[in-house]
Design a protein around this nucleic acid. Structure first.
Lengths: 190, 190
DNA sequence: TTTACTGATTTGTGATCACAAATGGGGTAT
DNA sequence: ATACCCCATTTGTGATCACAAATCAGTAAA
């Protein structure tokens, strides 16, 4: 999810088992679970690797993000009080720090935390799980793109999201979230 | 997905292994994979069962169905030619037959085939997989409800879906699909 | 009748192993 | 230089096992 694996990077059962100092059995379960969510792809011979997404699939996943996350933000809006918005500001500053450090994994992690913090307020665990499944699938690709990008500014639409939250402006919030996702898509397809 | 398991019904590794005449290992992988998708829930002690959904969660899953399936139908519309629509008619008749036979599992299966046939045309595998994950989670609950319902008529909105397809009417199609899902939700919460 | 306890049984977990298939590299022939 | 082939090694799969925890039934006490 955080882009610790690049697209196409392969994993072996014994490798993962050794890395976490367990036997093959738990490693196998973890890998199979991630494959079931589409986070890892298995070749016909059973070998597992981080997925290399086609442009079509990236577009699909971005469309899913948009559908689900707009709904999540909309459901979070009535429950969003000031403490939450301040927390979002803090996280947003952390995002800028990670960008300054050129830390791709840190950037992705902080960016997702921004979104998750907002969506947790929606009290919609099934939807949040769906959104996270999508993030999981996009992780390796995001890392590959953001790793190459130098000196990107902090996500422009995050400020719009926060001010729409503060104003209780639902249409504005929906638009801001959709724009943020779309902007992310543009980066991935650039 | 088809409601062969009722809500709360428990599964054991050794039970599934014996049922399919394999060892515990493949049974475990299958069960863990289904748990990862939310199709089975695991208790804190690791025991697995078909999920018993709360009303809140059912509403969430129905909202997800609506979001994703409306989008899928919309993407399928430009590619839907006459042969597809005729196929939908055939499946819809099969649905009526299953209702007449009071076969809950057969009804669910045919109903999902109707939707899947349409959505396959969208050429959006990631979205379809998401929709199927939702169906998977709703399976046991649907069976429990439809099993009790006697003499239900065939889904009213399927005809609307087909005529909107024939007319190339996108807003009408979106509305018809949303109505069909909403109608299904009403049955589940009744 | 209900509650509490206890021992037999069931059950998930992690580990290990044998085996077949796939992979990858080095050498040979064209 | 390229394509092909062959063999050592890696890798996933399914099976089995030991063990601890949880579950369940049956009994006894209140």
């Amino acid at each position: 999810m955080h882009g610790e694996l690049g697209p196409g990077q392969t994993l072996t059962l014994r490798g993962v088992a050794a890395e976490f100092d367990v036997s093959m059995t738990p490693a196998r379960e973890a890998i199979r679970r991630l494959s079931a969510e589409g986070a890892l792809s298995v070749s016909s011979s059973g070998r597992v690797s981080a997925p290399e997404l086609t442009a079509d699939r990236i577009e699909e996943l971005a469309a899913l993000r948009s559908l689900i996350e707009v709904e999540l933000s909309s459901r979070a809006l009535p429950r969003a009080h000031m403490a939450l918005i301040e927390r979002l500001y803090t996280i947003n500053n952390r995002i800028s720090e990670q960008i300054a450090k050129h830390d791709a994994v840190g950037y992705i992690r902080a960016n997702l935390e921004f979104h998750r913090t907002l969506y947790l307020r929606a009290q919609a665990p099934a939807m949040l799980a769906m959104a996270e499944t999508v993030w999981l699938q996009l992780g390796p690709t995001m890392r590959a793109r953001y790793g190459k990008l130098q000196s990107k500014e902090a996500p422009r639409y995050h400020r719009l999201i926060m001010s729409a939250l503060k104003a209780g402006d639902e249409p504005g919030l929906r638009l801001a979230v959709r724009s943020d996702v779309t902007q992310g898509l543009k980066v991935l397809l650039a």
